[in-house]
Design a protein around this nucleic acid. Structure first.
Length: 868
RNA sequence: GGGCGCUUAGCUCAGUUGGUUCAGAGCACUUGGUUUACACCCAAGGGGUCGGGGGUUCGAAUCCCUCAGCGCCCACCA
């Protein structure tokens, strides 16, 4: 036999990758079929594949491949995201290594570097997705900075502005002092940290007394423009109209009264720095306080900090605390645990900062998006994320969309150079000048205006993704968007529920008055086997491509999916890939066996073959229904497990073992053909999970139509399955008996039985799988016969073996247990309330159990009496 | 502080409206096996008072109350 004994995935997988690439098999264009569409969550353009991607994209590939097999027009749109802040940070770092500072070069120069960087490192991840088998329509590959998508973004901005959803305002925002940009609330992560609470002395003007103010940030005293207390705080009621002197600074500031101050915190006095805290900003606004920003953009102290000017905020804090201590201005210090805000991207401590930014009003846009999910028009799997979503959406805050970066979509707002309060929103400078004319009646030239320096939040382009990849923003009724939108399913991690999923739903209704997708499938996080999140820092994240080299893409795909129910974190262990690889090998060898059968064209199918084919056909039909159900509920792992057992247990261990000709014998042509049909159906069921080996074997199987298609399932005949299960149980018991009695498998034994269940075909199966003779007899009961009970039928096994004392005590134990069980059943059945209330089916079942237990007891008693 | 979820075999997890098939699966483990597809294999087997306590019911892994432990999300106080 020239087929390799061990399956070697690499060669075969590479062959199929080439074929898929060359033949462009996953291309989709609108036609008369029903569409099944997925848009990929675009990975970072310069990113590299990690286990999370592998899981996420494998699931998408499974869904899309199954849809394709079902005959739907399956379209999976791939693409990448420019990932504004993340990519810019990488480029900045690269430049720094070259000795170039971002601030020393122009915007255009920076962008040239960034594009070079993107071209050099970009797109790698798409090739990696190909390697794991992703069947995307690669002709449709999009990048969020492509000109068409960029235009869509700009059009969107203009539309939102024209319709009154955009505004520019000075607010306290999250400032990343390392990336030098604002962040949205979603880009900030909180971490618990132990710090110190300092009690500072603020001298009361014209008095020797001090007011004690507790703060964690003494370095911000240069920005203090008031001290606030709660109006209900009796301790401070007498301080109305008094002023305080800010320590070190010497500035006189008023005492103001504001009910947002917690009486119980610290001393109940809050130092107010309106430029550096949202709450303080509001207090400042209400009391018309001066706003003093004491930080430069990189969070060093500015000129307001006097001698501390130029120091980093943490260094300044140290020195200020020293100086305050020296001058006796700290009354006490206590340790205090609170949450500090960190930038998701740079991990630096976020500084609340007052700044002028663009915002989207979200409240109204969110309304239809809430309804869509609550009403079930869009379904979440698992459901639990619905609550999280609803909660967030109902309390949604305006979205800060401007970022002080270069890499991204530049905000299409043009300001009058010498008066920034006058601006227009437009596609380009030319249009801007026209708009200035119509809005302000200004006759301007290009030199009079300047475009906003900021770019848009990355998510401002990706929230349009399901629309913009089909060009539905610029051309709202083109053929593609009409055909593919709304898309079918989206697959992503719950970590971007707010960043992306919620916003896509909102944009879907805002721009198209329609949902972007029907179902959202949330995957869990991939963790290592200890439960730790996989990360670069811990070094516990395997490289999927390396794993593929060892186990094959098919093996890694199913290895990952073996324990990945929707929404649950996945504890990844490389052992799972071993299981995946072994499974590939099992399928491969099943093929080897079938391929190697000797064939008899004359011989009609033997009775064992007939029984096997009859049963497997029904069993397959039943399993297909179960598999479809699992898919319909997005229980992908469950679908895989049913398929796995169908192949390994049902097809290999049972079906093939029954039809396998004995040594020197041959299989009938008819049965061989039936087997090939089964095999092909199985390969179709496997294709979504293991596309490489499935296609390879389908091609090799040597049947007329090698094209895989999702098998239909006729209604299955339960009786056939039940009878087969019956003999299966018998087979197990016989094998068990042989093992328990040290009878070699090959040694033939005799089985006596008397029932109508077994026909000749089933009998031949039992013979084949247990190596026994079956003899019909009327209750043959002899001393040397052992009995087994299957359902209510008794089988006797003839054996030389006599029972020993251990067996006897075992039988006695069993008898005792069954007598006890019988008592319980009898008690239950004599309970009047049970008989009155329980459904008939339940009562019938209890009676059946009682019948069974009675026969069991009878047999056991007979056994014991025989032994005496 | 507000909200959501989880706790079932050694591990990872199923378990729909309480009742047939309910105490399950995969892996791991134990035992026995191989010249005739595959030791990346075959066969058989042992594992759980369903987190603790209480309640409703003829009947609870499933419903209610309570306690304990774990996880996630949101908000954030100087």
């Amino acid at each position: 036999m020239e087929i390799d004994k061990v399956y070697n995935p690499n060669e075969i997988e590479n062959k199929w990758l080439k074929k898929w690439d060359k033949e462009n098999l996953f291309k989709s264009v609108p036609d008369e079929r029903e569409a099944y569409t997925i848009v990929i969550p675009p990975p970072n353009v310069t990113g590299i594949l990690h286990m999370g991607h592998m899981l996420n994209n494998t699931i998408q590939d499974i869904l899309i491949r199954r849809a394709r097999l079902k005959g739907l027009n399956a379209c999976w749109v791939p693409g990448t995201d420019h990932a504004s802040i993340a990519t810019e940070a990488k480029v900045v770092k690269m430049l720094k290594e070259k000795g170039i500072k971002k601030s020393d070069i122009s915007r255009d120069e920076f962008l040239t570097y960034a594009w070079d960087w993107t071209e050099k490192h970009g797109g790698l991840i798409l090739n990696q997705l190909k390697r794991i088998g992703c069947s995307c329509d690669w002709d449709r590959t999009k990048f969020t900075l492509d000109s068409d998508l960029s235009e869509s973004v700009i059009d969107t901005f203009i539309k939102l502005f024209d319709e009154g959803y955009l505004y520019r305002d000075k607010k306290i925002v999250n400032w990343d002092p390392e990336a030098l940009t604002t962040l949205s609330n979603e880009e900030v992560i909180y971490k618990e940290e132990e710090t110190k609470l300092f009690y500072l002395k603020y001298q009361i003007v014209d008095s020797k007394d001090y007011l004690i103010v507790a703060t964690t940030r003494p370095e911000t005293i240069f920005g203090d423009t008031a001290v606030a207390v709660n109006p209900d705080d009796n301790r401070y009621k007498n301080l109305k109209n008094k002023k305080l002197i800010v320590p070190l600074v010497g500035r006189e500031v008023p005492i103001v009264f504001d009910s947002s101050v917690e009486i119980d915190f610290g001393t109940g006095c809050l130092k107010v720095t309106p430029a550096h805290s949202e709450k303080d900003f509001i207090i400042g606004k209400n009391n018309e306080l001066e706003i003093i920003d004491i930080f430069n953009d990189d969070a060093t102290i500015n000129h307001h900090g006097k001698k501390y000017q130029g120091l980093d905020r943490f260094e300044a804090k140290k020195q200020i605390v020293n100086d305050l201590t020296e001058q006796g201005l700290i009354s006490k210090t206590e340790s205090y645990t609170h949450n500090i805000a960190l930038s998701e991207r740079t991990n630096s401590v976020v500084e609340p900062k007052l700044s002028l930014q663009w915002f989207i009003k979200m409240k109204k846009i969110a309304e239809p998006a809430i309804d869509a999910v609550v009403s079930g028009d869009i379904k979440f799997y698992p459901k639990k994320y619905m609550n999280t979503y609803k909660n967030w959406m109902e309390n949604i805050r305006d979205w800060n969309i401007s970022r002080q970066l270069y890499w991204g979509h530049r905000i299409p707002v043009y300001y009058l150079k010498n008066d920034n309060s006058k601006f227009v929103v437009s596609k380009n400078v030319k249009d801007a000048l026209v708009k200035f004319k119509s809005k302000f009646n200004f006759e301007l030239t290009v030199d009079d205006v300047e475009q906003d320096n900021d770019v848009l939040d990355t998510w401002f382009s990706s929230w349009l993704w399901p629309i913009s990849v089909f060009d539905g923003i610029r051309n709202p009724s083109n053929d593609d968007i009409n055909y593919y939108y709304p898309t079918s399913d989206i697959v992503t991690g719950p970590d971007i529920l707010f960043f992306w999923i919620a916003r896509m739903i909102m944009s879907g209704y805002y721009f198209r008055d329609n949902k972007p997708f029907n179902n959202v499938y949330f995957t869990g996080l991939v963790r290592d086997k200890k439960g730790q999140k996989m990360s670069k820092q811990l070094g516990n994240s395997p490289d999927p491509i390396e794993l593929i080299k060892n186990y094959g893409a098919d093996g890694v795909r199913i290895g990952l999916l073996f324990s990945a129910p929707a929404g649950n974190d996945l504890l990844f262990d490389e052992k799972l890939c071993v299981q995946g690889k072994n499974f590939s090998n099992k399928i491969w060898n099943a093929f080897r066996l079938v391929k190697g059968f000797d064939i008899s064209t004359q011989k009609p199918p033997q009775s064992n073959e007939l029984a096997a084919v009859k049963w497997f056909n029904e069993n397959l039909n039943m399993k297909i229904i179960e598999i479809n159900n699992s898919y319909d509920n997005f229980k992908i792992s469950e679908a895989l497990m049913i398929t796995y057992k169908l192949v390994w247990d049902d097809f290999c261990s049972i079906f093939l073992e029954i039809i396998k000709p004995s040594y020197g014998d041959a299989i009938s042509l008819k049965t061989l053909n039936d087997t090939k049909v089964f095999f092909k159906k199985i390969l179709s069921l496997l294709e979504p999970f293991m596309p490489f080996i499935s296609n390879e074997l389908s091609e090799k199987l040597d049947i007329s139509n090698i094209k895989l298609e999702w098998p239909n399932s006729d209604v299955h005949d339960q009786k056939i399955i039940e009878n087969f299960n019956h003999i299966n149980e018998l087979i197990t018991k016989v094998r068990n008996f042989k093992k328990a009695n040290n009878i070699p498998f090959k040694e033939s034994i005799k089985l006596y039985f008397d029932n109508k269940i077994l026909d000749n075909e089933l009998i031949s199966v039992i013979k084949k799988l247990t190596n026994s003779e079956l003899i019909i007899s009327k209750n043959k009961e002899e001393d040397d016969l052992n009995s087994v009970l299957i359902g209510k039928y008794i089988y006797y096994i003839e054996s030389e073996k006599k029972l020993n004392h251990d067996d006897i005590s075992e039988i006695k134990d069993s008898l005792e247990y069954n007598i006890g069980f019988k008592k319980i059943l009898e008690k239950k059945l004599s309970n009047k309330r049970f008989i009155e209330n329980a459904p008939q089916a339940v009562i019938d079942n209890e009676m059946k159990k009682l019948d069974d237990v009675k026969s069991k007891i009878k047999i056991l008693e007979k056994k014991i009496s025989q032994l005496k």
